Simulated scan of single mutants.
Amino acid sequence: MASSLLAGERLVRALGPGGELEPEQLPRKLRAELEAALGKKHTGGDSSSGPQHLVSFRLIRDLHHHLRERDSKLYLHELLEGSEIYLPEVVKPPRNPELVARLEKIKIQLANEEYKRITRNVTCQDSRHGGTLSDLGKQVRSLKALVITIFNFIVTVVAAFVCTYLGSQYVFTEMASVLGYRAECWPASLKPGSPHLQRVLAALIVASVVGLAELYVMVRAMEGELGEL
């Protein structure tokens, strides 16, 4: 935090012999403090401008107060012409070595986790780490699961068709015997059809329903696998 300023040439000349502050009859203590402050040279800051003088804000306030009490025609802002606020260089405290080592360790750990996340779906081409063999095994298992699923679908649909066709012979035989009773007396448009054709149609309907159900289950299972990926 700034607490002083770099005195300009105007303030230095005003406080010197025959300067503008000489007629103002400054208090002895204030003049001594100002002369002591201007007598000390500050070598920091801009080295090209040479040594500079530091004056605290307290002395500037005391000088301003004295000028106001005397109703002086000399204004403070005129005396401070060429002066600048001095901002001391901030010295950073040394960091704790243990804390620095811990932060570096955390940074390395986070970088490794980020690298693993980015390269999670990248295929490893190094056979020494088994990347190619593991990928090949995954592809074979996926293909095997797909073949088994298709085979189960076909077997299920065919089994539903066969079971319905074989089981419906008893139903349609009895229906044919009942509906065929005195069928010769029926009009041609109302005569019952062939029992064999009816059994085939019934088997196709059941097989279609079972196939649609299997397809629905397969699609839901594939959606779940894709969601996990």
Rank of each mutant, 00 (worst) to 15 (best):
G137W: 04
C185F: 13
G227A: 15
E78P: 01
Y86M: 03
L136M: 14
Y181G: 05
A32H: 10
E9W: 08
P27W: 04
Y86H: 14
S177F: 13
Q52L: 06
V200I: 11
S47T: 14
L11G: 00
E214G: 04
S189R: 09
D135I: 09
K105H: 14
M1I: 10
A14T: 01
C185S: 15
Q125I: 14
L15S: 00
K105F: 06
V162C: 06
A207D: 00
A2Y: 10
S127Q: 11
L136P: 02
I118A: 11
G224W: 10
T164R: 00
L136H: 11
S48F: 08
A2V: 12
V171D: 05
T149P: 01
G50D: 03
F172H: 03
Y75W: 13
P23L: 03
G82D: 02
S208M: 08
E78Q: 15
G18K: 03
S3A: 14
S142M: 13
K92F: 11
F57L: 11
A14G: 02
H196G: 13
L6N: 00
P187V: 09
F153T: 06
I85M: 07
N112H: 13
D126G: 02
P187Y: 09
L215F: 10
S208G: 10
I150N: 09
S168G: 05
H129S: 11
R68L: 07
E24A: 03
V100Q: 08
P51V: 04
K40D: 07
E35N: 11
S127P: 04
S48I: 06
S208A: 13
G211H: 01
L6Q: 01
E214D: 12
R117V: 05
K41Y: 07
A37K: 01
I148M: 11
I85D: 05
T173F: 11
A160S: 06
L190R: 13
